[in-house]
Nucleic acid binder design. Structure first.
Lengths: 172, 172
DNA sequence: GCAAAATTATCGACCAGTAGGTAGTTATTT
DNA sequence: AAATAACTACCTACTGGTCGATAATTTTGC
């Protein structure tokens, strides 16, 4: 893993625990074994790092999902696959969704970071609409926003109350 | 309004826009017209201020709801009343739910603040369970976590995408 | 094939600004 | 006399960011 990748990974862990202000260049640098000045070589500003982090998070999230039509063709319910990805983030990583946390504080985010968080949710809603459409839902757009809202909310509350059974109850 | 009340009000606005780290004693002091050292007279530490803020927020939130049984007796659907309180926070205040934001970053919060955020959600779930029970729901506890999850999530996404119609679609 | 030039990735030293917090003091009110 | 509510001055720690320097590597021109 390159230093740049290591910096993004370290930043992701910090942000998913406490938001955009929960990481500093010094901390990241220390964790990957370089000096804080060197971080600016890879990311000119903190906003650049945050934006690239959210961008990559979105891409790998969507990549992990696959295409709704293909899932359906393989006999899987794409909504279950989507729910499972959230469950893994909560149970395995024991962390919030990166963009769920950044979205909550989006009013105080640098423009380029906020833009990437918007991209995450727009792409998620597009994917979920296609998924619900494939499932024969009468109103796919409404089902899409309801699905992602429920999952982000249930994740946040389960984290807060430190009890994953709330997530299970909400998604059951 | 006393200085202490003014400080809490100013802090609430900041936190609901960008989380716990989005306010400083200096900023608050400046906004209410005192010096930052004087803020420590009212709140010994930042954690004390944050905890008292979340506590009062919870109390006034619950007070604004009233009792589910009374609402029901007055011909109102308590779930609609609950939804309306979230809608007002989003549309009128144009801000996130204080504890929704703090909950997302609860892993990085001081203990006494996190405790107050937990109290908010525990009390909300109790209220909602009673409300759904009064509505004759077969599984009030499940309906409760689903209701608050959907509302917190829809609020966050509407804020992020800067479009309240997502909240309306999700709650319709 | 090789020297010159450019690029990559790091460093130490430093900057101005801000953070939360403390100590001791001064008025005002009870 | 005591409690309240503010003040000035200061502390240490940390923030994102800049500067010029330094090797190591890669690319380019002859």
């Amino acid at each position: 893993m390159s230093k740049k990748e290591a910096l993004l990974k370290a930043a992701e862990n910090k942000v998913r625990l406490g938001g955009y202000s929960n990481f500093s260049f010094r901390e990241l640098a220390c964790e990957v074994g370089i000096k804080s000045a060197s971080v600016h070589y890879h990311f000119p500003t903190k906003a650049d790092l945050g934006a690239e982090l959210a961008h990559q998070y979105t891409d790998s999230f969507l990549a992990a999902l696959g295409e709704p039509s293909e899932l359906k063709a393989n006999g899987k319910n794409p909504i279950d696959v989507y729910t499972q990805l959230f469950r893994r983030a909560l149970v395995t990583d024991k962390k919030m969704c990166l963009c769920g946390l950044l979205g909550a504080e989006s009013d105080s985010l640098p423009d380029k970071v906020r833009l990437e968080v918007k991209r995450f949710f727009n792409q998620n809603l597009t994917w979920l609409s296609a998924a619900h459409l494939a499932n024969g839902e009468p109103n796919p757009a409404q089902a899409a926003i309801q699905t992602v809202s429920l999952l982000e909310g249930a994740m946040m509350i389960s984290k807060t109350l430190d009890d994953n059974s709330y997530f299970e109850l909400a998604t059951q």
